[in-house]
Nucleic acid binder design. Structure first.
Lengths: 145, 145
DNA sequence: CTGTATCCGTACCGATACTG
DNA sequence: CAGTATCGGTACGGATACAG
């Protein structure tokens, strides 16, 4: 991952420049792992996927998102939107009307990402039961405490 | 996501039972988002992917992992291994020899997951430049502070 | 309607020391 | 070799109040 203690993870609260290119030798496998981490560090926030999915079906307004994504706070919605916009995954368009109207749209890059997320979704749906069972079995054998 | 404040995220430090089935009505899109979150909550930890990748190439020993995954601490390696084993993504085999020898192997489910991670890896590699550029552009327009 | 600002809990993770 | 135990920092995210 990051070989120095310069952490390359997302800073959701405060933006930070993040260009930790791999300099040290990686095993091919761990290079892959490192790249996946890059994605997750950008899109792995608690709400990013939800916002992305909602914005992938056409332009969405702020309040629409707030209603569609159950449980999100106004603060986190704003932060998530800013981060996704910053990474070029969302386009923010302001209509200078009163009351103000702001629309968010997923970029082609984000739409492409959405495709791959479907793969993960299907994986989770297929194995949800098995994983749940594995947990129960594990907790019974070892102490649930 | 989780409609109550019962959070379904991973507890990495302390195991916790996590079966928050979706009961409330979801929009189809947000249902997808919710399922992806399930995956990330299991596998989105800082080191999970790295461990998974390393274990997908055959049985690996504890110390091997410690060396391959640059920067991981002994504590985090143990915790990550325990979580993955609990979810049925890793099998732990103990050889009762002296000195002790423990081997971790990815299960078929984990191998399948690995396939899908490749999709994300390729996505990141394709768009790494564009995202980086988008960040720079964004930070120049809005304040980098 | 679309945000900002502030306070604060807690999960995640690192460092370090100890053990069968 | 393969862990466990404990302490502490800090980023993430929730609640709430305020604003253009």
């Amino acid at each position: 991952m990051s070989q120095r203690n310069t952490d390359v993870s997302v800073q959701l609260d405060m933006p930070v420049d993040c260009d930790g290119e791999a300099v040290a030798p990686f095993t091919p496998g761990q290079a892959k792992a490192c790249t996946v981490r890059e994605v997750l560090d950008r899109v792995g926030g608690k709400w990013s996927i939800g916002v992305l999915v909602a914005a992938s079906h056409g332009p969405v307004r702020f309040t629409e998102l707030e209603r569609q994504i159950e449980g999100i706070s106004r603060r986190m919605l704003t932060l998530t939107l800013r981060n996704l916009e910053r990474d070029g995954l969302l386009v923010r368009r302001v209509h200078p009307t009163v009351p103000p109207k702001v629309e968010y749209t997923a970029t082609p890059i984000a739409l492409e990402l959405y495709e791959y997320l479907v793969g993960l979704t299907n994986w989770a749906e297929r194995h949800r039961g098995a994983i749940s069972a594995a947990r129960i079995a594990y907790d019974r054998e070892h102490g649930p405490v």
